[in-house]
């Protein structure tokens, strides 16, 4: 079982060219910020390193940070320009019983992150969900389709904080 500090030290030694941000002075679980174009390499290392063996992706979830430039449209609804979307990767090693939390920040207007489906197959549906609800484009994903919303949903990604629900879908009234 390795501590958060030991795991981050191993990561920094393995990838000297990547600029990790180690966030250990937070109130909740400490985490490591990984660049979106390196997340697959980092995850592969975490899975295959003999002392780490993170064989389980417990959860992969997205958050709309909503920290860009806030403006209003004609109807007075919030519109966000710029800012970031976050992805959180909860990893656990079943053998060593240690855990780590990774965070990936991506551009809110053009979010694209490398897929980790090749590392853990369970990431497939998690990434489809993040794509469906937040519009994050996962590069190298084998089957990036909507998973929860209807396949022909053309009104955007519902968990974004500036999302507007449509009046009608397929002739059915949507608002109450």
């Amino acid at each position: 079982m390795k501590s958060f500090e030991e795991i981050s030290k191993l990561l920094i030694n393995q990838f000297p060219s990547i600029n990790f941000e180690i966030k250990s002075d937070v109130k909740f679980e400490p985490y490591i910020i990984v660049p979106p174009n390196q997340i697959d390499n980092v995850c592969l290392f975490l899975r295959d390193n003999i002392d780490l063996q993170f064989d389980s992706l417990v959860n992969l979830s997205a958050v709309d940070d909503f920290n860009g430039e806030k403006t209003k449209d004609e109807q007075g609804n919030d519109i966000m320009k710029g800012g970031t979307l976050s992805l959180y990767y909860h990893l656990e090693s079943i053998k060593y019983r240690h855990k780590i939390l990774l965070r990936v920040l991506t551009d809110r207007d053009n979010p694209s992150v490398l897929s980790v489906t090749s590392v853990w197959n369970s990431a497939n549906w998690h990434e489809r969900e993040a794509f469906d609800l937040f519009g994050i484009n996962f590069i190298n994903h084998p089957d990036l389709r909507r998973i929860l919303m209807p396949y022909d949903w053309e009104f955007g990604h519902p968990l974004r904080k500036d999302y507007q629900n449509p009046e009608f879908y397929q002739g059915m009234k949507v608002p109450y």
């Binding site: 929860l148 919303m149 519902p158 999302y163 629900n165 059915m172 009234k173 949507v174 608002p175 109450y176």
Partner: peptide
């Protein structure tokens, strides 16, 4: 629509629709 009546972006608000 039940508990999803206001923020349920994916829920039909009554099957009688």
């Amino acid at each position: 629509g039940g508990p999803y009546w206001e923020h349920g972006y994916h829920v039909l608000k009554g099957v009688d629709r």
